[in-house]
Simulated scan of single mutants.
Amino acid sequence: MPVLRSLMRDRILHLLLLIGVILLLLADYRWAQLPQAVDWQTIMTLTGLLMLTKGLESSGYFDVLGARLIQRFQHERALALFMVCAAALLSTFLTNDVALFILVPLTLTLRKFSHLPISRLIIFEALAVNAGSLLTPVGNPQNILLWSHGSLSVGGFILQMVPLAAVLMVTLMALTWFSFPASSIDKHEQSDTHTWQKRLFVVSLLLYIVFIVALELKFTGWALLLVAVCFLLLARSVLASIDWSLLLVFVAMFIDVFLLMHLPALQPWFARIGQLGEGGIYLLAIGLSQVISNVPATILLLQKVQPSDVLAWAVNIGGFGLLPGSLANLIALRMAQDGKIWWRFHLFSLPMLAWSMLCGWWLLRWLH
């Protein structure tokens, strides 16, 4: 019943389904192509991460960490700067979505111990993983695609992205500084001890490590099966309480993007992409990312143009701005469970997009 109620209340899922029905009537496709349009590797990865994160959260250990953070930091600004830096750092080698699955539940527990602006902090963590993950080839899916299609080494790719990453991180840290006051954290009265389920925490943590290693070894399906069976035997409530509708949202997004790319009216425009100059590619990559997310935009553009620093910078900048720009945005805001966070996110993300576009283009012109 909780799952059904979640599906009935999910307005984003309803909107994506409505768009999908309309596109089904307009696009040129075969029904057999629709299952292939879904990136099932991503769906399996998200499913596993949702289970593992819920397992860690259900163990109660995030309460212990949250209490320690509140004791360690005395001022809102210092705590915010720490969380933003942690999000950016983790995203460089654990990918942006994994970093969020670790930090957002921890951030939510801080609400139990203080009157912190939790939603604003989660917004900045979403911005941080977009800025931090662009630095390395494994920081996010679009970088993995660009690196695998190009000829740069790992060091060469990082060197290519350093100027943009440096500017965006300096900008984000300055924005964090001014957005969070230096006032003392208003703390709740809390007990000295916090109960937690040690066995569930240890099992979830070990499975987390196994799952991340399995992702690198391309054994995602078997690892997901292992995680599901362990929770089925140890803590069935974990499986019942994860956000299943989020997975359906991602499936619907993949199908909608596939249908959009197969609209007959858009085919002549796609054919002209290869004739665009650097400025056109830069603007198109950012614009497409705002509509269909930066990973599908990268997949589409790599069919027409060669991987370059212009394309790499543009699709990563496209992660800012509107909510669909990056799938990490959707993950973070869904986990926040705050109805007002959806429009508040854009108050910070849209200015960040405009500034990133200007700085990125100026840097590219200067470097070239």
Rank of each mutant, 00 (worst) to 15 (best):
G132I: 02
V291T: 07
Q160G: 04
M173P: 06
A297V: 12
M169N: 03
W366G: 10
V251K: 02
H14T: 12
Q337A: 15
Q41I: 13
A174I: 07
Q303A: 13
R111H: 11
V229C: 11
F82T: 03
L164K: 01
L100R: 01
A336G: 03
F82Q: 04
L205M: 11
T298H: 00
L276I: 00
F113C: 05
L94D: 04
W313H: 07
A214Y: 05
R199L: 15
L224K: 02
M161K: 06
E125Q: 11
L302F: 00
Y282R: 09
W355P: 02
L215Q: 15
R344M: 12
L94T: 04
P105A: 05
L224Q: 03
V249C: 10
G318N: 03
L239T: 04
A131F: 02
S191C: 11
Q33C: 12
Y282I: 06
I341F: 09
L152N: 07
M51F: 09
A86C: 14
R236T: 10
W31S: 13
L217T: 14
K218T: 14
L200P: 04
R199T: 12
V238N: 01
L168R: 07
C85R: 02
S237K: 13
T42D: 11
V203D: 07
L18V: 12
G150Q: 00
L168P: 06
I242N: 03
P35W: 07
W343C: 13
P2R: 13
T195W: 15
T45K: 09
L225D: 13
R5A: 11
I43E: 04
A252L: 08
L225G: 14
N316Q: 07
H346R: 10
A78D: 13
L121V: 01
S184P: 12
I286D: 04
A214L: 09
L17W: 03
Q337S: 11
G60N: 00
T92L: 07
S191F: 10
L259I: 05
D39R: 06
W147K: 08
L108M: 09
L327W: 07
Q303W: 09
H75K: 07
W40C: 02
A88F: 05
R236S: 13
I19S: 01
I144P: 03
D309W: 08
M44L: 14
R236M: 10
L353C: 06
W361P: 03
I242R: 01
Y29Q: 07
N130Y: 03
Q267D: 08
I70Q: 00
L247F: 06
F211G: 00
Q190K: 13
R72H: 09
F180M: 06
L247I: 08
G319T: 04
F73Y: 08
M83C: 07
L276E: 00
G20D: 09
P351K: 00
R9S: 14
G155M: 05
L232P: 10
W177K: 12
V98K: 08
F345S: 00
D309S: 11
P137W: 09
A88V: 04
L168E: 08
W269Q: 12
K112F: 05
I292A: 03
L350H: 05
V154W: 10
L172C: 08
A166I: 14
A32K: 13
L248E: 08
G60Q: 01
L247H: 01
H115Y: 15
R120P: 04
L284A: 05
S241Y: 11
R365F: 10
R272H: 15
L24S: 10
L16C: 10
S91F: 00
K340Q: 15
L323E: 08
G318R: 03
